[in-house]
């Protein structure tokens, strides 16, 4: 019966994952390997193709962008509606791309929040602790979720409609060119574990339910929830990857890398805030990053 409960939990989290995350690993890998039929991504590899790619997105997703802004709260409409193609000189390209990333990240935070709420027991935790778990866990989750979108040559963005090359990202001015390189290095290694979406769903829940986040008020119920999800993940990996030895341990070891990447990422954002006079940080991301590490 206990194993049956753990299997039910794995199924439940996988269903929630499919409900809240629009671009699954299965879809992303199909696009990256050219097996998605007509769904061929537009490739951004230089400034000219970046301009064309932006136009493609702006033409198709105005209402979506408005929706993102509404989700984000007050004071951002002006800034984000000015992120359109051709409205700024080419040297503003990095900041403009950075704003697009921020918009998508804010939307992704909403998706992760909904996923967290679907973890059995999460919404019964102290509300302050729910905030703390999300504050500390969400960037780790977002970075982890970039892995299925990446290969050694580039990354899918904009829900898989665009493939941006790693070389182009490296050609941006400092420190923008440094922002995604560590994520590529991590992703290439992480992807060799060959986790699928059902594995990822459980792993994301384990990350969110970390009982050692600073400032938690009531650690015990969080650790109890995490222990159950850990058991479910261990069993699921054994069934789903019977030939992959020590996969459970290898997956858990990635949590250390993720924490370090978040620390480095937040430091880069702080640097940007100091050096870029025109930089505007999304209010939701500001909340999350303030006093983080």
């Amino acid at each position: 019966p206990e194993a049956a409960d753990l299997r039910a939990l794995a199924r439940h989290l996988y269903e929630a994952y499919l409900k809240y995350f629009p671009l699954t690993k299965a879809k992303a890998r199909a696009i990256l390997s050219g097996k998605s039929g007509d769904n061929v991504p537009f490739v951004i590899h230089d400034i000219k193709s970046l301009m064309e790619g932006e136009q493609l997105i702006n033409n198709g997703q105005t209402s979506f962008q408005e929706q993102q802004i509404a989700t984000a709260g007050h004071g951002v409409t002006h800034t984000f509606t000015h992120c359109n193609i051709g409205s700024e000189p080419p040297d503003g390209v990095e900041l403009r791309f950075f704003y697009s990333c921020q918009s998508r990240s804010a939307e992704a935070v909403r998706e992760v929040t909904e996923f967290a709420k679907s973890i059995p027991g999460f919404v019964n935790l102290d509300l302050n602790d729910q905030v703390t778990l999300l504050k500390y866990g969400v960037i780790e989750v977002l970075i982890l979720m970039m892995s299925p979108l990446m290969n050694k040559d580039g990354t899918l963005i904009s829900y898989g409609q665009i493939f941006m090359t790693r070389e182009f990202l490296k050609s941006l001015r400092k420190p923008f060119c440094q922002m995604l390189e560590p994520k590529f290095d991590f992703s290439v290694k992480f992807n060799t574990l060959e986790l699928d979406d059902s594995d990822m769903a459980l792993f994301l829940a384990v990350i969110i339910l970390s009982g050692d986040r600073p400032g938690l008020l009531n650690v015990k119920p969080i650790e109890q929830l995490q222990e159950t999800v850990l058991h479910s993940l261990e069993l699921h990996l054994k069934i789903n990857h019977p030939d992959s030895l020590q996969l459970f341990a290898k997956v858990l070891q990635k949590m250390t890398d993720l924490r370090q990447m978040v620390t480095d990422h937040v430091q880069l954002i702080q640097l940007l805030k100091k050096t870029e006079v025109d930089m505007f940080l999304h209010p939701l991301l500001q909340e999350i990053m303030k006093d983080l590490y």
């Binding site: 929630a16 409900k19 984000a72 709260g73 935070v109 909403r110 929040t113 909904e114 709420k117 679907s118 059995p120 919404v123 509300l127 302050n128 729910q130 905030v131 703390t132 999300l134 504050k135 400032g215 209010p283 939701l284 909340e287 999350i288 303030k290």
Partner: peptide, 21 residues
């Protein structure tokens, strides 16, 4: 803490699309 994280708090409290447990 939730006072310093109003948007996050709102996302957590928003009941428009919760999964029924």
């Amino acid at each position: 803490l939730k006072e310093k994280h109003k948007i996050l708090h709102r996302l957590l409290q928003n009941s428009t699309s919760p999964v029924e447990l």
